[in-house]
Design a protein around this nucleic acid. Structure first.
Lengths: 197, 197
DNA sequence: GAAGAATGGTTAGGAGGCTAACTATAAAAG
DNA sequence: CTTTTATAGTTAGCCTCCTAACCATTCTTC
């Protein structure tokens, strides 16, 4: 449970009250903002607790998911076509894909290696690089817990209809794109769509 | 930036692909789930970076906000009526309101006290308890940074219209209530609405 | 081809989360 | 009353995240 937030969100009247004192406070923006963070905090901690039962943190789970390519079997066929990369393999690629620093990824890989979920191998061509490889233990582990993990996601989103889910995704996408724009002051001309397969 | 997530969300076709292998994977639920966490992660880190510029973490900021009662001046009038509490004052109340453990709150108060934002005072009637009090420095600090903080919220939510914000809040509320239900297996008959003033 | 710049990975040190165990005090039970 | 139980707060130890500094290697550039 990584976020610290108000457990009980303020009532709308309180936001209106605050707006009198702070002209910069936009009540509806503030309300949406707080609900977004509060809800995702609750959902996140739910998933994290569920994963903790199986003895793995969300961060490590994320790394395993990045490394685990269920299409691995199909890859031999697709390899020539090049339409489906085999996913990140080096610590740097993993860090980029996961959105953490390389130092953090080093730590995650350390504990995963300690627990026998991955192993490091030096890259024969570039001796600076390492390859991170999933072990059979990790694959069995993932196949074992994923069904419950997917069920939990489904259960969390159960109260929303299909069209509500589409609406939610549409609104969140607007916010996400705007937020990305804010954090990266729009230097690049927008890169291509994600190519994770 | 506390969460570790896929930076580039999987395409919907990949989810459909995965659903073939895992019948428990509900593509639209998974999509909504991932967008929710990804968006709030981006938004959260935006705010956290902004606060970090002013040398304060989101957690400490939250504590200050809980302690800071802008209605303090009005409280003398409201006190008799009892319709507006003066907010949490003890570490335990703060921990509950913020949704962290008491141990975590101890650490936050430690650093806040070290930096001169709060001070602890023993409770004269119950010698187990402490009172946490905001200093004048903290109040000036809050008044100084809050306008920019509110502006950032407004900017983040700018792409959504008023009605879209209402829709977003409505959908998130559904998910939040459901998630709370899941985490607390519905023992209590649902408590009253939040009474934070 | 040798010096400097860039890149990949790790280490060190800090912060904020957590749980579990501990101390001190107050309340309840006998 | 004394004993037990419950409560408030802290401490200790772990994990994940960060930044900054640090090697080793490769690439660039002259």
């Amino acid at each position: 449970m990584p976020l610290l937030l108000l457990k009980d969100l303020p009532r709308y009247e309180c936001l209106l009250e605050g707006a009198k004192e702070f002209p910069d406070l936009d009540p509806s923006a503030c309300e949406a903002f707080l609900h977004l963070l509060r809800t995702s905090d609750e959902v996140f901690s739910l998933v994290e607790n569920d994963l903790a039962v199986h003895g793995i943190s969300h961060g490590r789970f994320g790394v395993l998911m990045l490394l685990w390519n269920p299409a691995q079997r199909r890859i031999d066929a697709a390899h020539a076509a090049g339409d489906c990369s085999s996913g990140p393999r080096t610590p740097a690629e993993l860090a980029d894909a996961a959105g953490v620093t390389r130092a953090t990824m080093t730590g995650l890989i350390d504990t995963l290696e300690r627990d026998g979920f991955v192993r490091r191998e030096p890259n024969p061509t570039d001796r600076r690089m390492m390859s991170v490889l999933l072990t059979g233990k990790a694959e069995r582990f993932l196949v074992g817990i994923l069904p419950a993990h997917f069920k939990l996601m489904t259960r969390i989103m159960a109260p929303l209809s299909e069209s509500e889910r589409k609406t939610l995704v549409r609104l969140l996408t607007k916010v996400l794109e705007n937020a990305s724009e804010i954090s990266v002051p729009a230097t690049e001309p927008a890169r291509g769509p994600p190519v994770i397969c």
